[in-house]
Simulated assay, not measured.
Amino acid sequence: MAKGKSKEAWEFFGELLRERREAANLTRNELGVQVFVSGTYIGLFEQGVRKPQLDVAQRIDVVLQTGGIFERTCRKLVDGSPYAVYFNDVAELEAQATKLCEFAPTVVPGLLQTAEYARAVTTATNPFATEEYIEEKVSSRVDRQVILKDAARPEYWVIVHENTLLTPVGGPQVMARQLEHIAELVRKRLVLVTVLPRTTGAHASMGGMLQLMEFSDQPPTAYTETEFSGTLLDDPAVVKQAQRAYDLLRVAALSPEASLALIESAAEEFRRCASTT
């Protein structure tokens, strides 16, 4: 589904929600209490700014006695997305964020991946997939990167674990180009990348990837991801914990200057390996 049509569809979802809520004589806060989200989020759903997760849509159907219309609409919109179900909302939110902070413990973040690196990662996790499927996933990942080229791009802070720089995903040539790409983005000041050295040992986010998102007109959100699933976190107390974990990672990371030097050194080493094979 094209991005423009997707936005229009979610706006329609929001308009329908407002109409059904008002017909039931419920305020946003009253509906929010019954479906376990804040009234603020009900308002964001109605504006088409935020997309409710499936379980929230199901609870709205029950409270408003709609016969499942919101669940069916939500499923249809999610199925039309090129992303995994658990990542669909995150991709939408990234495009609205004013600031993104990300920790990558094992793989280069999607917003920084070259097409070759993305293809190697996707193929490794989907060894029996068709070439068409692989290319669709790679294209959707690369397409997300348009937010870094926009004049209103978000501040983008990234912490990568040193192991991420040293794992030869796709082979030394692919990895050399990947690290050179990151270095170029850093030098252009499109992203600020720091490296968490291996000597750090245990660190504040041992569970996996962590992303924090800030917005001009919405509460901050956190997102965590493991190998097979992801979780979008809206609860203010949980988001605060995630922010603290990220702050601890930032303290343990190398300086931006030392990090860039390490990235460029690793790229040079991969380039040397590629030339000898």
Results as ranks from 00 to 15, higher is better:
Met1Asn: 02
Ala202Arg: 03
Asp247Tyr: 04
Gly68Phe: 12
Phe215Ala: 06
Pro154Phe: 11
Asn29Thr: 14
Asp89Asn: 15
Glu257Gly: 00
Arg18Gly: 13
Ala266Asn: 07
Glu227Leu: 12
Ala242Trp: 05
Pro168Met: 02
Phe215Asp: 12
Leu196Trp: 08
Glu227Gln: 14
Tyr223Pro: 04
Thr122Gln: 08
Lys99Pro: 02
Gly110Met: 10
Val239Phe: 03
Val35Lys: 15
Glu180Thr: 04
Gly39His: 13
Gln243Met: 09
Val251Met: 14
Glu264Phe: 00
Glu227Ala: 12
Glu269Leu: 03
Cys74Glu: 07
Pro219Ile: 06
Val121Phe: 06
Tyr41Thr: 14
Ala237Ser: 13
Pro236His: 11
Leu93Glu: 06
Met209Asn: 07
Ser81Trp: 02
Ser81Asp: 00
Ile134Gln: 04
Thr40Asn: 14
Ala258Thr: 02
Phe270Leu: 03
Gly110Phe: 11
Lys137Pro: 00
Arg141Phe: 01
Val108Met: 14
Thr66Phe: 07
Met209Asp: 06
Val63Met: 14
Ser229Val: 00
Leu44Glu: 12
Phe45Ala: 08
Leu179Tyr: 05
Leu185Asp: 05
Ser275Asn: 04
Val146His: 05
Gln145Val: 12
Leu179Lys: 04
Thr66Val: 11
Ser255Thr: 13
Leu190Ser: 03
Phe215Gln: 08
Thr277Asp: 02
Ser38Leu: 07
Val191Leu: 03
Thr122Tyr: 10
Met1Tyr: 03
Leu185Glu: 10
Ile60Cys: 08
Ala266Thr: 09
Val37Trp: 09
Leu212Met: 10
Ser81Pro: 00
Thr27Ile: 02
Ala91Asn: 06
Val174Asn: 03
Leu233Ile: 15
Glu15Leu: 12
Ala252Arg: 04
Gly14Ala: 09
Lys240Glu: 15
Gly32Ser: 09
Ala242Cys: 15
Thr167Glu: 10
Leu16His: 09
Glu11Ser: 05
Glu94Thr: 11
Thr200Lys: 09
Thr276Phe: 13
Leu262Cys: 07
Ala176Thr: 00
Ser6Pro: 00
Asn126Phe: 13
Val193Met: 01
Ala9Thr: 05
Thr276Pro: 04
Ser139His: 12
Arg187Met: 03
Pro109Leu: 13
Ala261Leu: 02
Asp55Leu: 12
Val146Trp: 00
Asp79Lys: 15
Val121Tyr: 09
Gly110Pro: 11
Pro220Tyr: 09
Gly208Asp: 06
Glu30Gly: 11
Gly48Ala: 11
Arg144His: 07
Pro172Asn: 07
